[in-house]
Amino acid sequence: MNTTPLQDRADRADDDLGRLLSRYFKAQMPDPWPAAPPTPAARAEPSGLAAPRNVDPGRRARYTLAVSVALVLGTCWAFSNGFRPGDRPGGPAPPHGGDGFDLKGTSADGKGGLTGEIKKVVDGPGARQPVDDPLDLDKGN
C-alpha cells in the first residue's frame, strides 16, 4: 500500500516523539533502581508464628497473687493448730506433754500452760524488784 508524503511525515513525527518520550522517561526513572524499603526491625517477621508468643500480660500478676494468697493461708494454718514443734525432728518437747502450746493453761490446777509458766518466772525468786533508789551520778553509785 502506498503512503502519501503527509502520512510518511506523520509516522516519522510519531517515531521521533516516541523516541523523545522514551529518552525522557528513562532519564526520569531512578538509576540504579532503589532497593525495597527496609521494613521496621522491631516488627521482625509478621508471621503466624508470632501469635503463640503473644502471652497474656496479666498472667504474671495472677501468678504472684496466687503465690501470695497461698503463703498467707499457709502461715495462718501454721500459727493456729497446725504448727507442732514436737513433731519436728530434734525440736524441744512440749512443756506439759500435750500436743502443742496451751496458752490458756488448761491443766487441773489452773497453773499449767504457757500462762502458768510465765507467772512462775515473773513471781519467782529471781524476779526483778522495783528500784527505789534511782541512780545518782553525783554520789558515785
Partner: peptide
Amino acid sequence: RQRLAERLSSHGDFAPGDNGRA
C-alpha cells in the same frame, strides 16, 4: 501523542528531525 505533539509544536519545541531526532 497527537495532543502532546501539538503542544510542543505550538511552543516551537518539537519538530520531526531528519534522523529521527527531536
